[in-house]
Design a protein around this nucleic acid. Sequence first.
DNA 1: AAATTTTGAAAAATATTTTCTTTGTATCTC
DNA 2: GAGATACAAAGAAAATATTTTTCAAAATTT
Lengths: 288, 288
Amino acid sequence: MSALLSLLREQIPHFSPQEKRLAEYVLEDPEQVQWLGITELAAACGTSPATVTRFCKSLRFKGFPDFKMRLIGELSRPSEAGTYQDIVAGRPLKEIVRAIEANHLTSITDTTRLLDLQVLERAITALRSARRIDLYGMGTSSIVAQDFYQKVIRLGKSCTAFADSHMQITSASTLNEGDVALAISYSGETPETIAALQCAKDVGALTLSLTRYGTSPLPALADIPLFTSSLEEGVRRGPMASRIAQLHVIDILFTGMVSEGFEEYVPMLEQSYHNVRQYLNPSGGVQS
Amino acid sequence: MSALLSLLREQIPHFSPQEKRLAEYVLEDPEQVQWLGITELAAACGTSPATVTRFCKSLRFKGFPDFKMRLIGELSRPSEAGTYQDIVAGRPLKEIVRAIEANHLTSITDTTRLLDLQVLERAITALRSARRIDLYGMGTSSIVAQDFYQKVIRLGKSCTAFADSHMQITSASTLNEGDVALAISYSGETPETIAALQCAKDVGALTLSLTRYGTSPLPALADIPLFTSSLEEGVRRGPMASRIAQLHVIDILFTGMVSEGFEEYVPMLEQSYHNVRQYLNPSGGVQS
DNA sequence: AAATTTTGAAAAATATTTTCTTTGTATCTC
DNA sequence: GAGATACAAAGAAAATATTTTTCAAAATTT
């Protein structure tokens, strides 16, 4: 099942009656939709065009044509690749390897396709010009925050990435205008992370979020919402593909920052790299 | 090259001057077209909307929207993993995104190809039957260790993943036979990580390593050496693809462990997932 | 009962296609 | 070879189709 259709199915419980009918109609026969205009689709679902546009917008598409475009994009893909594989009991190792590879590859390509370059550009500029960057995230998202932290620090930029949710809020409350807070959460619903970002917003910091695609509290709170693809993965069994997708976005943000400020940043990166080994191991060569 | 783009290129000789400009523009940057309306595309090619519709019709499409739809359909095939791309100064964001995507995809496919299923199987069995698991790694590899730690803990298995190299050795020295130590380092040459694994080996623990493919001190020390693909990446500027590859292997190890011990482990995973939200947020629903 | 959300009808805005006209080129006639 | 005719190419603008927004009514919740 494609990422978009999974999203649709997942979100059904959150939809209003008419939106639910739309989602069900699309899930029933997605191929069909590409031949329909907004008016025809509305008629087929016994609703109005207005509802269809709103439906598309609520899914964060630019409008009905954008929705249709993405849907076609996903449908016209060969079925095997790009389909999330669940991992179940006692399968041969070879199959597990293949399934995980497929999931990670799908996660990366889907996430890339979802990226909005304009929004990304804004995020990069914001991060680059931030006086200080705060990172929030719990569990696996905390790992991703740590990763970004390690990168940003090497640029000589103030940054925090506390694992402790109390410390995250404590840190958030010391932000000012000109500072940036980035909250990471796959679901976009982690209460601790929302609290920290809300606090950052209240004290006047610019807020960014990195969540799965769709509507959830975190992106609603963010000035600049960023998204990863929303896979139907067994989150309970460990969010693996989603974490890869988050790191993918992090890498793009970081590389974007470095690329924009190349002259300034690259010497710092090289320097930090050399200093680690030089100070730790004055005699030996350079390692990592 | 997709069928539509090939068609376009083939037909160029038969096109009128303005049509040729259109075809060349589309061939130049097909991705771009999806964001343009007929008027914008016409303007971009210095021609009129009327010419664009005629152009589409002459290619036997129903009109411009139909043309765009087919084009998008063909373009959204999964991106291909290719060769490693270096990321340099001031390149447009779009190219950065494409380069990072390519690197991550390559990293995953190459690493998968390098995996030796027999060795992997041994590693999984060792980890599963380990009384305790110690993880070592510095810098980015420490992040990967943390990630594995978070996963293993949920299986109810003893595990440590200290970031501090002194603590890693301290922990290593308390291992016994029947315990497993996994050392992670992209280069395989990080002195602190080598030291910790050496200590673990000396006290009788089974030693595993996860490094880039090739010969280096760490895999030489390991009873079971695991490898990621070895990319020519600017490690100084941040090991991004290599960390993705490491996580990829970690995911395979973890999933392998869970799959082998499905009956035992899955209830624990489910339980830990539910408990997090149940105890933190007794009233509300389940989130992550 | 008041406030909020959901919804559709209709108006407005936007996008695409068609019509009509101009322009330039090739072909024909004397 | 000059001029007339035919025809293809291309754009301006009108016509059409499509999508989005606005606004008011209905349903739902507080």
